[in-house]
Design a binder for these strands. Structure first.
Lengths: 336, 336
DNA sequence: ACGATTGACGACAGCGTTGTCATGTCTGAG
DNA sequence: CTCAGACATGACAACGCTGTCGTCAATCGT
């Protein structure tokens, strides 16, 4: 049932250590010997025991994915990207959804986690990846991580994959302006995410670039949820100055907005153009479908994981670590 | 930085073994001694090294979650439920999304995985949990698991949490009948899931119970996707005998159906009633909202995990392991 | 009051690897 | 043909914990 390195050694008529060398692809093993060992391993169906390796090397080949995200699609895509890279490098993934708490508490929890399980490294997503104290805490405690964040803050220096939400938000807003809109409403997301500020900044920049003034009454603060999108459009439409277009901070809000706007009897996009952000499944399941920016979540996850693994094995990593979401134009802003 | 059991022992002036006893809550430690050790542990911030424990006990405290599910919401809910239980029992969770493959290949992969990482057990979801050969394979190889499945097959005997999809589907169909519908269309999901057959069986049973005949031309085979729901309703409506109500095998299909039906200009539910299954986010994001059955995914996950952990620690588990989704009636079948 | 039991603890040997260092073997330069 | 020096291999001690068993003292029954 359980075959150990010992059995392999005996079978191949070499020492345990030589088997170990073969397993780890170390040099200094004659080809013939290596072959003997490889055969023995195959014949016996030997699998190295991870726990023993971890103990001996006092490090593990498991990384943790830390998140606190209400959005299932995002979480799953992230996981897929991470696993994808890990599987090709012999790493395993442990998931750690965490409730939102004080940075200090999170840091303590993570340190505890890492020392207990000897996690090799962490992949952090917003909001954790954007908590400055948390990151420097991890730095101090010598915990490897990579933080996925919006471009602006750029905390954590090298250990970062940044998403240029601002540029993308600007592109979307500019697209609306190009369509002739002058009164463009903005549905802000949860203010505890940095992405929120970035998307808003992009919105503002686009308006300024087009020499339009920013009307604060056209900005509504929501929560990235369907409900808050719906509520937001409701409020903006009751304004004296009604928007002719709305840019929602994510697709879920945009879907909510669209839902409510159509309830009110508005034609989309003729009477109200609506754009989202993220290109989540929502974007194609509304009518009309949503103009949005595609956040290549799985790509980001892969990039982040590659960067982390590279650092863990002390390889240098020359991968680009900034990603700009791409504009996708659909019916919700462009009349058929 | 790294404090070992040795340091604690020295500090508490006891033997290593006694510290071990305290950590594992073993009896035969005098209260005073225990207290000394506990203090030492706290003062030093000691964390037992999992790898070493795993090696010494030759078993691990990590369970694997094995799935292959296109539905993000389901996957995440599952994970939440599992983690919930695990955190309270000191277990960790490793996720293993798997491509769909031959049962033998999956079994080999899983065995490999388990012997390599010494995973304590597996939580299997459809379709893996419903592959008879796979399950018996795991049985033979002495790999602990719990399989979440529709009630009918009941493979794997005790190691199972069953969802009574059939009863729930029957309830939904009966509800439609109660509303006076006689021509009820059915959108079937991916035939490789057992759930698919169960839901269809429930649909048929309800019709028979009401002395209605099952009209095969009112049954469309789809894929659990939005697109296939849309396509399905399209096809059923082009029938000579048009349905006045449609029961879709999941909410995503129902949303697709609703989307298409409204495009065609039909009033929902007046001209066409639509019901889904699962109570996913889709169900509340359509207009009108979907009548559906709530599959308490997180509860199921918890139940399954509890059962697995109970078995792992050789405790007896007296938990019920069958769950029937509950009917939720909303606007898509009930005029306001 | 005395042997017999029980309870509290420690010594020591693994668990299955890897790292270090010593040993033995081969190669090529002189 | 000889002898560094490079290469190939093995012995042995960790890694940090748990299981087993032995020891000793406190407790019990009679």
């Amino acid at each position: 049932m359980k075959v150990s390195i010992n059995d392999v050694a005996r079978r191949a008529e070499v020492s345990i250590k030589t088997v170990s060398r073969v397993i780890n692809n170390e040099p200094s093993v004659r080809a013939a010997t290596r072959q003997k060992v490889v055969s023995a391993i195959e014949e016996l169906g030997y699998q190295p025991n991870q726990a023993a390796r971890n103990l001996a090397r006092s490090r593990s080949y498991t990384i943790g994915f830390v998140y606190s995200n209400p959005n299932a699609y995002y979480v799953v895509s992230m996981q897929e990207g991470i696993i994808d890279v890990c599987q090709n490098s012999g790493y395993e993934v442990m998931i750690h959804p965490l409730p939102l708490q004080e940075q200090q508490a999170v840091a303590d929890y993570l340190e505890n986690l890492v020392t207990r399980t000897r996690l090799a490294g962490l992949v952090l997503t917003p909001p954790f990846s954007e908590m400055p104290e948390l990151l420097s805490n991890l730095d101090n405690r010598n915990i490897e991580y990579v933080a996925i964040q919006s471009s602006a803050p750029s905390l954590g220096g090298e250990r970062t994959v940044r998403v240029n939400d601002r540029a993308a938000a600007k592109n979307i807003t500019s697209h609306l302006i190009d369509q002739g809109h002058q009164q463009i409403g903005f549905l802000r997301g949860d203010p505890t995410h940095y992405a929120t500020q970035e998307r808003e900044a992009g919105y503002r920049e686009a308006l300024l670039d087009a020499h339009l003034t920013v009307d604060e009454s056209l900005i509504y603060s929501g929560q990235y949820s369907f409900e808050s999108g719906s509520e937001g459009v409701n409020q903006l439409l009751s304004n004296s100055k009604k928007p002719t277009a709305i840019f929602a901070s994510n697709d879920e809000m945009a879907a909510g907005a669209l839902f409510r706007a159509r309830l009110t009897g508005l034609e989309i996009p003729e009477q109200l153009a609506i754009a989202g952000f993220e290109n989540s499944p929502y974007a194609t399941q509304t009518w009309p479908q949503l103009t949005t920016a595609t956040l290549p979540v799985a790509d980001i996850a892969q990039l982040a994981t590659q960067q982390l693994l590279a650092r863990l094995s002390k390889r240098d990593n020359e991968l680009d670590s900034e990603v700009t979401p791409e504009l996708i134009i659909r019916g919700s802003t462009l009349p058929a």
